[in-house]
Amino acid sequence: MLAFLVKRLLNAVGVMLAVAFLAFMIFRFVGDPVELMLNEQASQAQRDELRMRLGLDRSFFVQFGTFVFNAMRGDFGISYRNQQEVFTLIVERFPATFELVLVATFLSLAIGIPLGVYSAIRRESLGAQAIQFISVLGVSLPSFALGILFILLFSVTLQWLPAFGRGETVALGWWTTGLLTPSGRLALILPGLTLSLFQITLVMRLVRAEMLETMRTEFIRFARARGLPDGSIHFRHALRNCLMPVITVTGLQIGNLIAFALVTETVFQWPGMGLLFVQAVTFVDIPVMAAYLIIVSFIFVTLNTLVDLTYALVDPRLRQDALAGGAHGR
């Protein structure tokens, strides 16, 4: 278990270093920061002075080392556009994105799992066929189109839900949440649904396929032979066996959701990291872009590692600590 943990952590560190390298390369290839920061009339002396102050006269490896060291302390430099610390800028926006992703993940599990189980055990029914059909739509409809359709229907025509923004938020320390106010909760519904629709169909199809597979196994046949009620066989025995891949996919998809939130955030003008990034791109705000890349990757890698560790909790076969009692017979 410890060796497993150490190995996973080393992997994570390796990936993060590679990402940091890529982010660092953006600075070098997008243009000379000195040219970007000084005006055209600046003298050579001024240029050299700034170059030295920014540490750009030092060797490539020293510069990369400094970049990584600063990034680890949360120092990503200063935004070119609004002269604020990049890290503060992103941290301010993080709660909005995270809450959106959390709601989308919750929706995908709460809706996807029951639908998946239903369409697996009532495979022939009309409802299951309809769900299968709709799920194809969910997979193929792009989220920006869906978001705009939702706005048109629920905000413009029916006027039930707000079309943009987070509504009122409450500050809990540095964290701002929209979950505690009615307008904040209402504002979460449309973007949450938009972001989760692909995810719902993914979870549903995964659960359905896994359930069909599991229902054919010997241990389900044996459970039926013992006369256990259908509810227990479906949910306690079969669904439990399907949860591993669902956890994996959900965990990995949280990273994807944070990345794809960019589109949803743009459609709904949601004040999250994704919107910040899109704005940064339009202004060639390189420190913000680099920091976004590193922070999103960090979340991705952290989730991946956590998912791996969760396996050990769900599947007792990966937990080797309780192996007592010895083997008899064989």
Partner: peptide
């Protein structure tokens, strides 16, 4: 009736028990 009045034993004990319970 199954399990109560008729018990069943299957061939492969490796696969007839639920691995996670």
């Amino acid at each position: 009736l199954r399990g109560k009045r008729i018990g069943a034993i299957f061939q492969d004990p490796l696969t007839s028990l639920h691995p996670m319970l």
